[in-house]
Amino acid sequence: MQAKAHFAQFLIERAFEQTLVDNQPHKPWSWADTHPVAKMRLLQTHAQGTQALGSDLYVLAGASGRNLAFGYSLMLGGAGVGEQGNTIIAGHRDSHFMRLQYVNVGDMIELYSATGKLQVYQITATQVVHETATEVLNQTENSQLTLITCYPFDQLSGNAEYRYIVEAKPMV
């Protein structure tokens, strides 16, 4: 699964590049039932300035277990990328979102939509909630980015009961 998560990003990147060109959704591979909708980059703030945390990763539409194995997934119940409302992105803690354990409040998140538009978010809060705490999925009046992964990060087995929530507000 680690290998799948790593190499799928190359196919997804290719599909996203095509989407940026013609603004049409492209499947990363012919039998896929999803398409990339955004590119996300985490920026860590240091005293010396900002530095990218890991490589750029792509966001797929629909947070199903299958999509999560390949990359970040946008929960379709929330707002779309760049739209008004609560944009919710989920990822696996043992692959792409393992890096979430290193982010701090104040770090930046760059989100490129499928039209190439850039939106920068700043992390305002991190919290750990139970998996039934679906109120983090509630829609908000203002734009907000919510990242979800499982918690704790160093657990080996897959049946995580808690979720690590990162909330970020857009920077104007």
Binding site: H92, R93, A133, C150, Q155, R163
Partner: peptide, 18 residues
């Protein structure tokens, strides 16, 4: 139903790798 709980964002991949 996915709407009832937050998405399952963990797999046992590292355990299986181990």
């Amino acid at each position: 139903n996915q709407a009832q709980i937050l998405p399952q964002t963990a797999t046992s991949s590292r355990l299986w790798l181990l």
